[in-house]
């Protein structure tokens, strides 16, 4: 199984996406997957065109993210770890990864 490449995306790529990366990393770890998950935080302007499996971001960036990434998860509440886990779980199930 190849690595899963995940981008967390925000506007500046320094604050919110980094915090999101930390929480996303944690959420993926809780699934104890048999493959490596690489999570990278970035800004939308840098993310554009980057090859990736999944983008986790906020509503305001979702349309743009969908234009170049096959899967996009939209987060409403960055602090809600359950929301993150549920949505990542749904993605993994949809892709038959769990």
């Amino acid at each position: 199984m190849a690595d899963l490449k995940v981008l967390t995306v925000c506007g500046a790529g320094v604050g919110t996406s980094t915090l999101l990366r930390v929480n996303v990393d944690e959420a993926f770890k809780s699934f104890a997957l048999p493959f490596r998950v690489q999570v990278i935080n970035t800004s939308m302007s840098r993310a554009k065109g980057t090859k990736c499996d999944l983008i986790i971001t906020f509503e305001t960036f979702s349309a743009e993210a969908r234009s170049f990434c096959p899967s996009v998860v939209v987060i409403k509440n960055l602090m809600d770890k359950e929301e993150l886990k549920t949505k990542i779980g749904a993605y993994l199930k949809e892709k038959k990864l769990i």
């Binding site: 506007g11 919110t16 915090l19 960036f61 602090m79």
Partner: peptide, 23 residues
């Protein structure tokens, strides 16, 4: 400008906004 350009995503949870920019 961050919000004007990128939208209100800095409101990261109900009632809380984290304003910031690149240094």
């Amino acid at each position: 400008k961050m919000v004007e350009t990128n939208g209100p995503y800095i409101v990261i949870m109900p009632g809380v906004a984290l304003a910031h920019a690149r240094p």
